[in-house]
Simulated assay, not measured.
Amino acid sequence: MDTFTPMNIIVDNLVELTELFSDVAMGAGLAPLLILVGALLVVFTMGVFGLLTLGAVGNLFTAS
């Protein structure tokens, strides 16, 4: 049962991190808006670079 102890610590830390982050994120006036804009920027850039990566991988397997 020693192998599950680090996993429990990691899960407990993630739960505590989520609670602390949500308290800070929803606390001040513009903080939720800033977090939303930041999340949208991250999702948009991940989507663009994901599509570019898929296009590059597809280009590897298609004949010219």
Rank of each mutant, 00 (worst) to 15 (best):
M1T: 12
D2Q: 13
T3K: 12
F4E: 08
F4Q: 07
P6V: 06
M7N: 08
M7R: 08
N8K: 14
N8G: 06
I9S: 08
N13R: 14
N13W: 08
V15G: 09
E16I: 09
E16W: 03
T18Y: 06
T18W: 11
S22A: 11
S22T: 11
S22H: 03
D23I: 04
V24A: 13
G27R: 15
A28E: 13
G29T: 12
G29E: 14
G29N: 12
L30I: 10
L34P: 00
L36R: 06
L36D: 10
V37G: 00
V37H: 06
G38E: 01
L40S: 01
L40R: 01
L41C: 14
V43M: 02
V43H: 07
V43D: 10
F44L: 05
T45C: 04
T45F: 03
M46W: 05
M46A: 12
M46F: 10
V48H: 00
V48K: 00
G50L: 02
G50W: 04
G50D: 00
L52V: 00
L52F: 00
T53C: 11
L54R: 10
L54G: 07
G55E: 03
G55V: 12
A56T: 12
V57H: 02
G58I: 06
G58P: 01
N59P: 01
N59I: 12
L60S: 15
F61A: 10
F61T: 06
